[in-house]
Write a protein that binds this DNA or RNA. Structure first.
Length: 706
RNA sequence: GGGCGGUUAGCUCAGUUGGUAGAGCGCUCGAUUUACACUCGAAGGGUCGUGGGUUCAAGUCCCUCACCGCCCACCA
């Protein structure tokens, strides 16, 4: 017997060596599995794309859970004989990465990005991204992830950039991408637009003011933002409201509203609730999306009064260049003095803030690029993107686990508005549109003729990640990989990016290649700390995966994340759990030691009545686990094998063997099967034990028991 | 305002299609120079949040309420 069995299992001394052995074997590539005869060339494919971690930072416990689940499924399917492919990659995460580098630049060199200029700044960002990529690759490997690194992708590399430009052009040519002057969510701190999904609502105390524009104006209105009222061009009332009906169609000229002249037209609109407030709404077309919609219906003019720095842009000296918060007070005070203020009430309101910077969102009218989600698409039977996204889950059979998220998904689609995809940041895919003399061209490659200037803006980072399932497989080129591995079998990710990412992938895939991107979506929950708190920097309760791996071993980290963590449920990470599974790895180690020890003594093999019973029982364990993993009930399968190995095999069967109630052949059989069954969950310790008794054989490339 | 999830042993949580409650940790008692102290055995501990309903049978299905948590939504 190998001497190392005389000591407790030492993960630290094992894992790196085992991973290198796996990498050298090439078995993580399905092509090599076929070449070596482990996988049948005509076997069914099974593919997963790794949700690309952001190059912003390092992997956290949530990513470790993701890797543990995916690697378990991938190893299982590989052992089942499928042509199994798991593609790694990274996401450039445009805004997140750029703002992080901006912060570093500010802190370390006291410079702003404008001091460097676009090119030099981007070089810094790329260097930062590159150094993180290397560290994250180490982390992926440390956990044992059986990823095919020969196919590694990056959202910003040449192939993926080509995919982005191709997708953009195709959507532009079919009229799905358009440029429009619309009210968008402006982040005054980040100085960029953001999409509806990047808004976070924060509950804050506010005031609602009820007032009239002037003493001879017949209708009072209410607002939480008096400063925007200098941009009002209308008042909307419900057409059936007898109090106000008579004014509909009239225009009132207000000579002096806090120093600004207003022209207010009364319009009738069904969206106004006569019961709420004064039953009338002041319409500010430039600074509210809902108002913009009312204004569009009634042809009210748009008057922008707030600029990109969240400062007033009216000529009135008292207001000009004032911050919105100051302007609010100035106007409120003016209303009080003029005797126009009817009521002021404290309320709690949800204000929209930018997810990244925390700044209060300022809705502004701007010329931006959008994806039209409602337009009927000729090449897709006249269906809209919304409809395509809907039918992917409704009809095409994408299964979302847990299934309650299907409802959430449908609800999101129903409320979806056109997606603003242009961003005023530097890091990311430049919009593939060029301008010259008032002319515009959308091309995959820059026009060769002189004088064409490319659009300054970049694309929302989710545009490129939306292409991920097929851009990683070579699209727009019609590759063999694309044909074989798309649609992918499984998309496993956190429920928090269902809208950001999962829905966008369905949109892109259904439109661009006419098929669903994946058959099953498995959404995992949040990994919290031992007290159930969200892990965050401000709480300082971050658990570093690499440290935990060093302390307890990757197998223990994986098991502690997997056991008992069902789809969609948040879970808690604790050192007790990690310790328990470290003990389990060692228990297994000693069980192997016991069996090997006895094997060396050439035990007589006398069949006993118990042999058959135990082998039958094991068969049913195998079949239960197979069903569980195929249905992605990893939390049940992992618990089942844990319990069987420790409390049946070790506590009962081995003990009975000592008493001669079980034959050695059966004991040996059970150990071998257990190693296989445990391998997807705890790849390192099982492989290490396997290699000790099976020279020239790799457990990773061994068939799952039947 | 709308939707969703949770409420099961002291703690943390499982419980897949309804068949008279499970695990880990902790606690108590005990074993043992043992493959393994990163061990083993035993014991204790739950009217499965509340109230009702369906059923031969409900933690599991339906309804009510309560508390905790999450998501969505620019009632001005």
């Amino acid at each position: 017997m190998d001497e190392k069995f005389l000591k407790p299992y030492d993960a630290g001394n094992t894992e790196k060596r085992i991973y290198e052995m796996w990498e050298q074997s090439g078995l993580f590539s399905p092509d090599i599995c076929i070449e070596k005869g482990f996988t049948d060339a005509s076997a069914k494919p099974f593919s997963i794309v790794l949700p690309p971690p952001n190059v912003t930072g390092t992997l956290h416990m949530g990513s470790s859970l993701m890797l543990a689940i995916e690697d378990t499924v991938v190893r299982f399917q590989r052992m089942r004989g499928k042509r199994t492919l798991w593609i790694p990659g990274m996401d450039h995460a445009a805004i997140a990465t750029q703002s992080k580098v901006e912060k570093i630049l500010e802190k370390e060199e006291g410079k702003r990005k404008s001091d460097l200029g676009r090119e030099a700044f981007l070089q810094k960002v790329n260097e930062f991204a590159e150094s993180n990529r290397a560290l994250m690759t180490t982390q992926l490997k440390a956990l044992g992830s059986s990823l095919d690194f020969s196919r590694e992708a990056y959202t910003l590399d040449a192939k993926r950039s080509l995919a982005v430009r191709t997708a953009f052009k195709q959507m532009y040519d079919e009229g799905l991408i358009y440029r429009g002057h619309k009210v968008i969510n402006w982040d005054p701190k980040g100085q960029t637009t953001i999409s509806d999904d990047e808004i976070v609502y924060e509950e804050r105390k506010g005031k609602i003011y009820t007032f009239k524009y002037s003493s001879d104006f017949p209708i009072a209105i209410a607002t939480t933002r008096p400063e925007t009222k200098v941009g009002d061009t209308g008042v909307a009332v419900n057409p059936s409201d007898t109090r106000y009906q008579k004014y509909i169609g009239q225009t009132f000229e207000i000579k002096d509203f806090a120093g600004t002249p207003l022209s207010i037209k009364i319009v009738g609109d069904d969206s106004v609730d006569p019961e709420y407030g004064t039953g009338a709404v002041g319409v500010t077309p430039a600074h509210s999306m809902i108002d913009a919609e009312i204004a569009r219906k009634h042809s009210l003019p748009t008057k922008q009064v707030i600029n990109e720095y969240a400062k007033m842009m009216v000529e009135t000296p008292a207001l000009k260049d004032k911050k919105v918060a100051e302007a609010r007070e100035i106007i409120a005070e003016w209303l009080r003095n003029a005797g126009l203020m009817e009521k002021e009430e404290e309320i709690s309101q949800n204000i929209s803030t930018a997810e990244r910077t925390g700044a209060v969102i300022e809705p502004l009218p701007k010329l931006q690029w959008f994806i039209d989600v409602n337009k009927p698409i000729p090449s897709r039977d006249g269906k809209s993107l919304k409809e395509l996204m809907h039918e992917a889950v409704e009809k095409d059979g994408i299964k979302i686990l847990p299934d309650r998220f299907e409802k959430v998904y449908f609800h999101w689609i129903e409320n979806l508005r056109d997606w603003c995809i242009s961003r005023q940041i530097w890091f990311g895919h430049r919009i593939p549109v060029w301008y010259k003399d008032g002319e515009l061209r959308c091309e995959i490659e820059a026009p060769e003729a002189e004088g064409w200037v490319q659009d300054e803006d970049t694309l929302d980072t989710w545009f490129s990640s939306g292409l991920w399932t097929f851009s990683t497989l070579g699209w727009p080129e019609q590759t063999k990989d694309l044909e074989t591995y798309h649609p992918t079998a499984l998309l496993e990710t956190g429920y928090d990016i269902l809208f950001f990412w999962v829905a966008r992938m369905i949109l892109m895939s259904k439109y661009l290649i006419g098929e669903i991107p994946f058959k099953t979506v498995y959404l995992h929950g949040l990994v919290r700390d031992s007290k159930g708190q969200k892990i965050s920097k401000s709480l300082g309760n971050n658990v570093e995966p690499l440290e935990m791996i060093a302390k307890y071993g990757a197998d223990a980290v994986r098991m502690s994340l997997l056991v008992g963590t069902g789809a969609g449920n948040d879970s808690k990470m604790s050192e007790e759990k990690l310790k328990a599974y470290k003990h389990f790895a060692n228990k297994l180690w000693n069980m192997a030691r016991f069996v090997f020890d006895h094997k060396a003594q050439n035990p007589a093999n006398i069949e006993t009545p118990k042999d058959k019973e135990y082998l039958e029982e094991l068969k049913s364990i195998v079949s239960d686990m197979t069903t569980d993993i195929e249905a992605f009930r990893i939390h049940l399968a992992s618990e089942k094998i844990y319990h069987y190995v420790w409390h049946k095999f070790a506590d009962v069967i081995i003990e009975e063997y000592k008493q001669g109630l079980v034959s050695f052949a059966t004991l040996d059989d059970i150990l071998e099967t257990c190693l296989k069954l445990l391998h997807p969950f705890m790849p390192f310790v099982t492989e290490e034990i396997w290699q000790s008794s099976h020279k020239n054989s790799i457990l990773t490339a061994t068939r799952w028991p039947m």
